[in-house]
Design a protein around this nucleic acid. Structure first.
Lengths: 259, 259
DNA sequence: GAATCCGGATATGTCGGACAAATCGAACGC
DNA sequence: GCGTTCGATTTGTCCGACATATCCGGATTC
């Protein structure tokens, strides 16, 4: 039987987020439990009636929460077999919720942070090139607001990471590619959390001034210089990756742009 | 009132896919209606009780379908206000279902096909570079199988598009980046449908032999040549874009790799 | 007469129970 | 010994009721 895996303490705290919808609270709680490994891949999810009995939540709300998680590829349900946690290879790892849960539940795995940086290194430089070609005047204001906020905040504050994420979101918006925009929520979440993780203590030496790096990218976008924007954006992401892990994307064989 | 927008014909065909789960059938049907513009953005979705009365489907099943669509960002629900269709800027445009619905319901909008190609042009070349660095022997077999199938099928057949999609999926798998892999389903769906759309009639002249283009990319990946793999992959996607729309990504200001 | 406040109407959110379908395992029969 | 069938278990579907949030319209008040 699954007596030992059977929830010794289903400490589902209803007060954690009282303002949200109930099924969202459950999904949040369950998502955190899964990404932190409390419910390992294979066959762990509490049975519907078990959860019902232990928490007092109705079956419908629990099922809606399961549907949310299943929509992100983290669960599969089969009649009789129960609901299983899928291996993380099948998760929507760029989903904003998955990113948030992963960083909220302590330290995410190394491979995940690494993969998020690599994804940024793939997407953000060409996105900056598109932005340089297509940005409008309204787009430029988004950059200016974000840069202004970054200049007047300390890098360890949450407000700085918010401004940082807004800057990178401005790039995706300015690219005027709808598909890219649909990934913006996940990418900006990755930016905010990986950056916060990078500067989680002030002893980490930052060899360059992050604000000026961003400002340089903005200058190229403002001047409609796609080649320069792409090159500076590549440097920016590579610097972040170097700061965080000690190797750049270039070291992994992804050739940087020679212009 | 909403008398005219109120479903003159809710022709929901229950026989369309009898083997699938009921809520999946509803989600499929509703998704097709939305992407094809039958339910425009703003405020169109039939009210729960209306749908209930006209189709005989239970409220729970309908709600589960709505939850699926809401998970893809295509719907927002608010108490009393009803359920609205969101503008397509907020949809998960790289979701496999959204891609499938868009191409199943006639001709998708130009901007969508264009955006999908641009996304491929951003992601696939660096993914090929990673694949050249990290591919294993088992990975290579995936390429060989796909290439073999492509050689022995006609380009207008569905089996050819399947093989094509398998080849591109093999690249994403061989990149050994979990986040990239989590986008594989959507990207391969985009590959399969855009390619099928490109070769929808045989009169379309293909200036190059697609199979040999793919084989050349495979050769670079097999020989662990990331720079060459990236360059050939860029050419492959640009060729497809040129064939389909008359302009390449380069024309749009995204600089191609100079090596 | 106009602004504000209150209550009813309406649509979604939540709940509890019941039955159907699918599937795994064990007992049974050949 | 092997295949079959029956039963138990878990999710899937449906129903009916109430709770909650929001919008609209009328009544009240200044």
């Amino acid at each position: 039987m699954s007596d030992k895996s059977n929830a010794p303490e289903l400490a589902f705290d209803r007060q954690a987020a009282p303002e949200k919808r109930k099924n969202e609270s459950i999904a949040d709680w369950l998502g955190c439990q899964i990404v932190s490994g409390v419910f390992a891949a294979g066959e762990a999810i509490p049975k519907e009636m078990d959860f019902l009995a232990q928490t007092g939540i109705s079956r419908g709300a629990y099922r809606e929460a399961l549907r949310r998680l299943a929509g992100k590829g983290m669960l599969v349900t089969r009649t009789r077999s129960g609901t299983r946690v899928t291996p993380h290879e099948q998760w929507s790892l760029l989903d904003p919720d998955v990113v948030r849960w992963s960083f909220k539940s302590g330290t995410p795995p190394d491979w995940y942070i690494r993969a998020l940086y690599e994804m940024r290194a793939m997407i953000e430089p060409p996105a900056a090139a598109f932005a340089a070609e297509r940005r409008t005047e309204e787009d430029l204001q988004l950059f200016r607001d974000a840069l202004h906020a970054m200049r007047y905040c300390d890098i360890t504050e949450d407000s700085w990471h918010t401004a940082d994420a807004n800057f990178h979101r401005a790039i995706l918006i300015s690219s005027h590619n709808p598909v890219l925009l649909s990934l913006a929520a996940g990418i900006t979440a990755a930016v905010a959390h990986t950056t916060a993780f990078r500067y989680r203590d002030m002893s980490n030496p930052h060899t360059r001034n992050p604000v000026e790096e961003h400002a340089a990218v903005f200058e190229r976008i403002e001047n409609r210089d796609p080649v320069g924007a792409r090159r500076l954006m590549t440097e920016l992401v590579d610097t972040a990756l170097l700061d965080s892990k000690g190797t750049t994307v270039f070291d992994l064989g992804l050739p940087t742009l020679k212009v």
